[in-house]
């Protein structure tokens, strides 16, 4: 029963990592770049929801505030691309890495300036109540996180496999110039994917804030989500979810069964281990091209 309880709470945490990792993968799949500010976007999404729904700020009902926050974050994502990332369109990945790290600094500063640096809690209807299944206690928030993450992953996977826009996004990432020749508006597609990943970040933020307090440094969780995305292989959506679940499940087990100092290094050690032996993740999409 003990093991089952650890497993369930690990899965719920893992889903949050998986959601952030989904944001990484979305942008990677469509633009071949990694958004190092994804964790900070999640933090911003959580704070926007908090600002809209908590009684001491605007005080909207939660079910109105959440979709509104998701829409706002989609707009923020689109604007970030329009105003900043489009300027370095076509340049190599390292430039994008450095740019998005800097963006994360700025987002953290903005959130701190607006909402302060103290941890705050979201007054969320998801945070109330527990469910008991046999001896396992499940928070409502945990159930919500798991359900939403699985649904979102399936929807996004279908979006990339089935729809015209999803295919266009994959084409744009593989070869920008060839995609132009095929009539794909590459820049607009890039803007749309940033909007989409902003929305996913907002969902992750709402769910994360329902599970506990948030502060402007919550975005540093993104580093653990890197572990998730790398373990899953950056190009794969289900891989991101699986990677998130692996990291999430390892954490509680490591802190239960390993000595104190060793438990928090477990996810990063796993990350390095995967990079050493499978440099492109478990669900690798790298193929060697024959010249």
């Amino acid at each position: 029963m003990d093991i089952l309880q650890l497993l369930v709470s690990g899965l719920a945490n893992g889903c949050v990592y998986g959601l952030i990792a989904l944001g990484f993968v979305l942008i990677y799949k469509a633009t071949e770049a990694v958004n190092f500010a994804q964790g900070d976007l999640m933090m911003l999404g959580a704070f926007v929801t908090l600002g809209l729904s908590n009684a001491e700020y605007v005080g909207l009902p939660f079910w109105l505030a959440a979709p509104l926050a998701i829409a706002i974050m989609a707009g923020v994502g689109y604007l970030l691309d329009l105003l900043i990332l489009r300027h370095i369109f076509g340049q190599n990945q390292t430039a994008v890495v450095i740019l998005t790290i800097a963006l994360g600094f700025v987002l953290r500063f903005v959130a701190g300036a607006i909402w302060g640096h103290e941890p705050q809690t979201l007054q969320s209807p998801l945070a109330m109540g527990d469910i008991r299944l046999g001896g396992v206690v499940l928070g409502m928030a945990d159930v919500a996180v798991i359900v939403v993450t699985v649904l979102l992953t399936i929807c996004l996977y279908q979006f990339f496999q089935r729809t015209k826009l999803g295919l266009a996004m994959q084409a744009a990432s593989q070869n920008q110039m060839a995609a132009y020749y095929m009539g794909i508006p590459v820049k607009r597609v890039q803007g749309l994917i940033w909007g989409l990943s902003g929305a996913v970040a907002a969902v992750a933020g709402i769910l994360f804030a329902s599970k506990g307090a948030i502060d402007p440094n919550a975005g540093l969780l993104g580093i653990k989500a890197f572990a998730a995305a790398v373990i899953g292989g950056f190009g794969s959506l289900p891989g991101a979810l699986v990677g998130g679940l692996i990291v999430g499940v390892i954490e509680p087990f490591a802190s239960r069964y390993l000595a104190a100092g060793y438990s928090q290094i477990a996810p990063y050690a796993l990350l390095l281990f995967v990079l050493v032996f499978r440099p492109h993740g478990l669900f690798s999409q790298v193929r060697v091209k024959k010249v």
């Binding site: 370095i88 450095i98 800097a102 700025v106 500063f109």
Partner: peptide
């Protein structure tokens, strides 16, 4: 202002890269 330093640093960096 807490965090001002990193915020300004990030902004300078974004301007430089652009």
């Amino acid at each position: 202002i807490p965090g001002l330093e990193m915020g300004v640093f990030g902004a300078i960096l974004i301007l430089f890269i652009l």
